[in-house]
Design a protein around this nucleic acid. Structure first.
Length: 548
RNA sequence: GGCCCGUUGGUGAAGUGGUUGAACACAUAUGCCUUUCACGCAUACAUUCAUGGGUUCAAAUCCCGUACGGGUCACCA
């Protein structure tokens, strides 16, 4: 029995050849240097930081070079597939603005190189596998997983290399007659690649991040098609899809480095040009002094949802991830504050090869700077948008009087160095809630050095009956606070107080703190003058009643 | 265990044999400024680049060994 006959027996309905597919998916017509990248997640769960870093790299590479960025749904693992995962992926890409040029979504296909969902490409993979069987480079394997387990245990006991290769590959040298017979008997089988590599031969692989790496040749007969649904494994889908879709740069995590020898043999067997590879840095987490791969299960900050729920601006996430990718990005950003990150010149050799810890403090810093540079209208719009999804109560409150809220958000914003209070949209409510009567109940007063109730009442009532005037400008206002301090036996300025503290009951800072806490309950707030103006005398007097 | 990749401060890191007394940014601490906070300013924070040896006039930078960390060895991607 010939290989061709065996191939026809296994795939009787596959008529198209590799040449047919090559003709269907001709080379892309792109300018010189344009890169074609893809984000190819498997829909098995939530989007995590590693996915983000990868999609950012892909998107950046394509857009920076005038190329194509496409989304490919790697759903060949039907057992682990989660339905909503694709929606989560789209949501994340939309949030960050990484809109793919080509994709499948909800029965819609955009782009000429589709379908972009692997489960819809079954017959394409099978045509390629049929070709391999015909040329004697793939064969059906009837080993069950139990048999494979036993083999592995034997190999461990003998301390030999683990895997399906050489003499261990039981099904490798079956005759075609035997194969055909067992298939006709209805035995389940997978398809394995027939390797011709020699483990003792080394070759050099060039990775854009790590540089030259010396590997032994692959000699494993890996499974390329599963028995259950005749769908390919990742390795084979990678070969077919990235070839046919003309991917120029494959971005994936470093965990894939180990399977490079196999991929190289696969591409060589077909005579296909190898794409460029960027094996990206792994995001790690430090715990008890030990670094480990960041985990979806244990680390809430590993999931995209964490950042969306807290309300980090997408630009902040992108900036912080760019910093991880190329640490000189920050310096570039300082020198080019108004440019898009897409104009940055990314250098893959500068990507860390040892794994990076994602620093939330750094994210906060980047985000605070970013938000501090926004106008009150931008902050307000973002806040409305955020609360619409996560805090309806607060949304209703701020929308009762948008101008009031904007005025609050504008405190110490229009100045050369604006306040940096908010790292994310959910921070805002935590810091300005006391400006709204709806939220001002059951408060806890954060009194400072003065805690005596009578003294507090004396200070506040004297101030509001004798000194406070809504029409005062800031200097007048503060001079009056000083007058109040003097009247009650407190130092009106700090220098005087520091020189002779024993002469005073306290100083003007103590007085200010009492006033601040009395009307906001908080010890730390932005500029008190601005707050008093916004609150208005009636509201403040009402709040004073609460402490009497 | 085999194969592969790493190891510079709390973090991201700069650094490719000699202006490095190890940059820059974040974090932390202290001080100044100051009505609080934030901002701003100033100072501190790796006597040393995992470790042992070698090459060299000279090494974080090149070579070898060791230790440690990570990845991978699935009909998962």
């Amino acid at each position: 029995m010939t290989n061709k006959e065996l191939a026809d027996l296994i795939f009787p309905n596959i008529d198209k050849t590799i040449e047919d597919y090559e003709a269907m998916y001709p080379k892309r017509n792109l300018p010189e240097g344009a890169k074609v990248t893809r984000f190819a997640p498997s829909p098995t769960g939530y989007v995590h930081l590693g996915n983000l870093l990868q999609s950012l790299t892909d998107y950046y590479l394509a857009k920076n070079s005038g190329g194509i960025f496409y989304l490919r749904n790697e759903d060949t693992d039907t057992k682990r597939e989660i339905k909503e995962a694709v929606d989560k992926i789209m949501e994340a890409l939309n949030y960050l603005g990484f809109i793919p040029d080509e994709y499948d979504y909800q029965d819609k296909t955009v782009g000429k190189y589709g379908p972009y969902t692997q489960s819809k490409r079954r017959e394409i993979y099978q045509a390629f596998i049929k070709h391999l069987i015909t040329i004697g480079r793939a064969y059906p394997c009837f080993c069950t997983s139990e048999e494979l387990d036993i083999m592995r245990k034997k190999q461990e006991a003998k301390k030999s290399r683990i895997g399906y290769y050489g003499g261990w590959a039981k099904c490798r040298d079956l005759t075609n007659e035997e194969r055909a017979q067992r298939i006709k008997n209805g035995e389940e089988f997978t398809i394995r690649f027939r390797s011709e590599g020699n483990f003792n031969h080394k070759f050099i692989f060039h990775d854009l991040v790590t540089g030259d790496i010396e590997f032994p040749e692959n000699d494993m007969d890996h499974i390329i098609m599963k028995s259950s649904d005749f769908l390919p494994t990742y390795h084979f889908a990678h070969l077919v899809d990235d070839h046919l879709m003309h991917t120029t740069h494959v971005v994936r995590g470093q965990e894939w480095l180990a399977s490079v020898p196999f991929h190289v043999e696969l591409f060589n067997t077909f005579g296909f040009e190898l794409p460029n590879y960027i094996h990206n840095t792994l995001l790690l987490k430090q715990e008890n002094g030990i670094r480990r791969k960041i985990s979806k299960r244990k680390d809430p900050e590993a999931l995209m949802g964490y950042y969306i729920e807290k309300g980090y601006p997408k630009e902040a996430i992108i900036e912080s991830l760019m910093t991880i990718l190329n640490s000189n990005y920050e310096e570039w950003r300082d020198n080019n504050p108004d440019k898009s990150y897409l104009e940055f010149e990314f250098n893959p050799t500068k990507v860390s090869t040892s794994g990076a810890l994602y620093d939330l403090d750094k994210l906060d810093n980047i985000s605070k700077n970013l938000i501090s540079k926004m106008t009150k209208d931008e902050v307000y719009a973002n806040l409305v948008n955020f609360t619409a999804n996560f805090d309806q109560e607060f949304k209703d409150i701020i929308e009762k009087d948008p101008e009031y809220t904007k005025a609050i958000l504008n405190i110490e914003r229009v100045q050369e160095k604006p306040r940096k209070d908010y790292a994310c949209w959910s921070d805002i409510r935590k810091q300005i809630w006391y400006m709204y009567d709806e939220l001002y109940h059951d408060v806890t007063y954060e009194w400072g050095t003065i805690t005596d109730h009578d003294e507090i009442v004396k200070i506040t009532s004297t101030y509001f009956s004798k000194y406070y005037n809504e029409a005062d400008d800031k200097d007048t206002w503060f001079n009056k606070v000083k007058d109040l301090a003097t009247e009650l036996g407190y130092a009106a300025n700090m220098k005087e107080y520091k020189a002779n503290p024993e002469n005073f009951k306290g100083n003007v800072a103590d007085i200010s703190t009492v006033l601040r806490v009395a009307i906001t309950s908080k010890k730390q707030t932005p500029d008190l003058y601005a707050i008093m103006k916004l609150l208005g005398k009636d509201k403040m007097l009402h709040r004073l009643d609460l402490i009497k």
